[in-house]
Amino acid sequence: MAKQKQQKNHLGKVNLGKHLKKEWMLYSFLIIPVLYYIIFKYIPMFGNVIAFRKYSGGPNIFGQKWVGFRYFKQFLKDPSFWNAFRNTLTLSITYLIFRFPITLTFALLLNEIRNLKWKKFVQTVSYLPHFISMVIIAGMIKEVVSLTGPINTMIESLGGEKISFIQEASWFPPIYIISGIWQGLGWGTILYLAAMTGINMELYEAAKVDGANRFKQAIHVTIPGIMPTIVTLLILDIGGIMGSNFEKIILLYLPSTYETADVISTLVYRMGISGGNFSYATAVGLFEGVVGLILVVTANLVSRKVTEASLW
């Protein structure tokens, strides 16, 4: 038995070596993304040691005074942290609740379009906002909801009073969620549409024979066929709940909207980059990363038991 296992391992290594030698040009495309993650994702993780040291700047992050969990205790007692933590969960979960089913529904509707020219036109129009710079997106949002924008113009024409949407804390979540759905709706359908192309067309033919209409075909054939993709994307979205859209929020929020707009990433930016409290900001960022990891692992375990589909 031991000899057989050794022979299998040897054959596996030989086959893998031959495959890598044969497809080296294909695997060479992995060099850049692998280097990207090593340089910009894994190496910076050593900087998390700052959260346990009294860091005041400079390249020697390991030579600073060790203070243990001092900054973790500090931010856990900070009301501004808990406000940012609550806002992060509120914005991310609400956005996920609305965006996920809307994106899936839009993908199903796109898949039902039989006119290829019209389908390409709809896809192009829906994809376009994703490629617009976030700075331009934020500028467009501010113009639309400004006192002289189209929304307030319509409100005034109907006899109402103008609303300063961008300066009122209560209006920030709707602005963030609606604009996010508009910006990512088309782009979010790409993986769904790609998964739909792999569904066996004979299943649709069988459903037609059984008398299923388009709606029933989507429910009983299309959705089960792309369920692994749905589950995978849902797990990734749950894991990203703690990571709100930093660029968009920091371009839109104001001190008057901190109550509902300030999230963990903007708090880290203000405390670390703007305020110079690097250790405190690193501790908050590390806490955010750990919570995100727990969410991903938990969602993956639940998905594996419930749907038998998971990331690993």
Score class of each variant (00 low, 15 high):
10 H>V: 05
303 S>T: 04
36 Y>R: 01
157 S>D: 09
147 L>R: 06
68 G>C: 13
259 E>H: 02
291 V>N: 04
96 L>Q: 05
266 T>V: 13
26 L>Q: 11
43 I>C: 08
43 I>K: 12
232 T>M: 14
163 I>W: 02
306 V>Q: 03
159 G>H: 10
88 T>C: 09
58 G>C: 13
285 G>C: 04
127 Y>C: 05
129 P>T: 07
76 L>Q: 04
97 I>D: 09
8 K>I: 13
303 S>F: 00
186 G>R: 00
270 R>S: 02
281 A>Q: 03
236 L>I: 06
135 V>S: 14
301 L>Q: 09
210 D>S: 14
305 K>V: 01
268 V>S: 01
20 L>G: 11
30 L>W: 09
62 F>G: 13
73 K>R: 14
27 Y>E: 09
200 N>P: 05
27 Y>V: 06
217 Q>G: 04
75 F>Q: 06
143 E>T: 12
105 T>Q: 10
280 Y>D: 07
126 S>H: 09
52 F>M: 13
149 G>H: 08
300 N>D: 14
75 F>K: 01
7 Q>T: 13
153 T>W: 13
307 T>W: 10
43 I>F: 08
152 N>A: 08
62 F>T: 14
101 P>H: 06
305 K>T: 04
91 L>F: 09
53 R>S: 12
221 V>S: 03
119 K>N: 10
212 A>W: 07
39 I>P: 13
241 I>T: 04
191 L>M: 15
